[in-house]
């Protein structure tokens, strides 16, 4: 029971983090028709920027500054890069974002090196928040969830209650028509791209220290986020939300279940070769591929994803 609750909480907090990434990616994809391969690179930039800023002035300023900076970088990349490539069609756009992902990775290698940096949870949040049966649930996890939920609320509010949100929702189906009605759609694209990058960066700021901040983090998270939006249905925010939580929880359970199997074996005093073999084969090898298995199943039985509209 304790194991179940803790894993569920961890799974949800991871899932919310995935949604911070997949929501931006989904919005960018449905508005601009670009699958941004570099999206997770902005997640990584967020983590590294936060690391750098927090060594200078602490975690709290980093929490605000890093996403803002990355948002500005993202907006500029849209304005001066992607927009120019756009007129040559979708394939060059895809190649552009692909190249961008490599470029960002190389820049990270260059500045911060190839191994993980020591980006840590702030001391103010490094304590147990509440008791889950026998163990303390870490406050930082609670903080992650709070930030994610606040962001989710802000995103929902912006999309449903503001004029720019209305323009974004309309542009999801007929961007040209929105522009012909007198709205500066290219500027809205830039804001959405920058905003999506800022969201990804925020996920990096709060996730980079909970997990690891290293050059491989972009590729690792990027492929999961890709799975999320395929499973949720390309272009569907609600689908991305459900898929984020589902994959967050499934993966957390898969990993955790395995550890606990080993632990259980250990507890009963069975530490032999066989125990280790059984304990590790079962799920730990499956955990990383589980999302992909889910994706393949979805692609077979429901190619447009959970809530997607078009068949892609």
């Amino acid at each position: 029971m304790e194991f179940f609750l803790v894993s569920l909480l961890n799974g949800v907090s991871y899932g919310l983090l995935l949604f911070m990434l997949s929501s931006g990616l989904t919005l960018i994809f449905s508005m601009m028709g670009v699958l941004n391969f570099a999206h997770a690179s902005f997640y990584m930039l967020g983590a590294y920027f936060a690391y750098q800023i927090s060594t200078a002035v602490g975690f709290w300023p980093a929490l605000v500054l890093a996403p803002l900076l990355v948002g500005v970088v993202g907006g500029a990349i849209e304005r001066y890069g992607l927009r120019r490539v756009h007129r040559y069609g979708h394939v060059p756009e895809l190649l552009f974002t692909f190249g961008l992902a490599y470029l960002i990775e190389e820049v990270v290698h260059l500045i911060w090196g190839r191994i993980a940096v020591d980006y840590r949870i702030p001391e103010a949040l490094d304590f147990g928040a509440f008791q889950v049966f026998d163990s303390l649930y870490p406050a930082y996890r609670v903080f992650m969830m709070a930030v994610s939920i606040a962001m989710l609320g802000a995103l929902y509010w912006t999309l449903t209650r503001t004029r720019i949100g209305l323009i974004i929702r309309a542009a999801l189906t007929h961007a040209d028509m929105v522009q012909a009605l007198g709205h500066n759609v290219p500027r809205v694209f830039m804001l959405v791209f920058g905003g999506g990058c800022a969201l990804a960066a925020l996920a990096g700021v709060i996730g980079g220290n909970a997990f690891v901040t290293e050059p491989a983090m972009a590729a690792a998270v990027g492929s999961i986020v890709f799975v999320v939006i395929v499973v949720g249905g390309l272009g569907s925010l609600a689908g991305a939300f459900i898929a984020s939580l589902a994959i967050g929880v499934i993966q957390t359970f898969a990993v955790a279940l395995d550890w606990s199997l080993l632990d259980t074996f250990r507890e009963v005093g069975w530490t032999g070769e066989a125990a280790r073999a059984i304990g590790t084969i079962k799920l730990s090898q499956f955990a990383p591929v589980l999302p992909y298995i889910l994706m393949v199943l979805i692609l077979i039985f429901r190619p447009r994803g959970l809530l997607g509209r078009r068949d892609t």
Binding site: L166, I167, R169, A170, L172, T173, H174, M177, V178, L181, H183
Partner: peptide, 12 residues
């Protein structure tokens, strides 16, 4: 714009 309301279409 099919997913938003008639009023919102007009507001746009």
């Amino acid at each position: 714009f099919p997913d938003i309301t008639v009023r919102e279409n007009l507001l746009l």
